[in-house]
């Protein structure tokens, strides 16, 4: 099972889900292809591998519908830094999706580094996400890419903005 999850819940009929095939399904293009197709009118998304330089997307970010960052294994944390560069360095405000091996315990960290959608396969993880029982900590010792309030005490601290 593959679902797309955001903080608003499960996304039905998401066009960018990676196991949807078909002639008219829009495509997540690898970096090199995306740079070539940037003049096309059709909407397109980009999927980066961990070794790709996220900063290379700068010239085409305005025309990109979605950026997906790949986690080939949960231990490969390069996507966290790619996400920070996209959000903070390049000012990307569109959809940023984590694909590959997405662990429940990483989702709160991914949200902090600027991811806002997640392609998830693991049933117990999907269940927890649907129930909105995320295993994160709402107090942070460092600023990141997410929207937070200033924390108490020192300039580097932040607190989560809780929904409802």
């Amino acid at each position: 099972m593959t679902v797309i999850w955001t903080q608003n819940g499960i996304v039905e009929n998401d066009p960018w889900v990676s196991d949807v095939t078909g002639a008219d399904a829009p495509k997540l293009l690898p970096l090199a292809e995306a740079l070539e197709h940037s003049q096309d009118n059709a909407p397109f998304g980009v999927v980066l591998q961990p070794a790709d330089d996220a900063r290379a997307l700068a010239p085409i970010l305005e025309s990109v519908a979605i950026v997906a960052l790949t986690f080939p294994a949960f231990s490969d944390g390069r996507g966290f830094s790619q996400a920070m560069l996209l959000r903070q360095r390049l000012g990307y405000t569109g959809e940023l999706r984590a694909v590959g091996t997405v662990l429940l315990d990483q989702v709160p960290l991914m949200l902090r580094t600027g991811f806002d959608s997640f392609e998830v396969h693991h049933a117990p993880t999907i269940e927890r996400l649907v129930e909105k029982r995320l295993p994160g900590i709402d107090l942070h010792y460092q600023p990141a890419a997410d929207k937070t309030d200033a924390g108490t005490g020192y300039s580097w601290r932040r607190t989560a903005i809780l929904n409802g």
Binding site: G77, F80, L109, R112, H140, Q142, Y154, R157
Partner: peptide, 16 residues
């Protein structure tokens, strides 16, 4: 101590 706080559960640097 400043480094300890800043590095605790750092979202970007927990899977180095």
């Amino acid at each position: 101590e400043i480094l300890r706080q800043w590095s605790s559960v750092h979202p970007e640097f927990s899977f180095l």
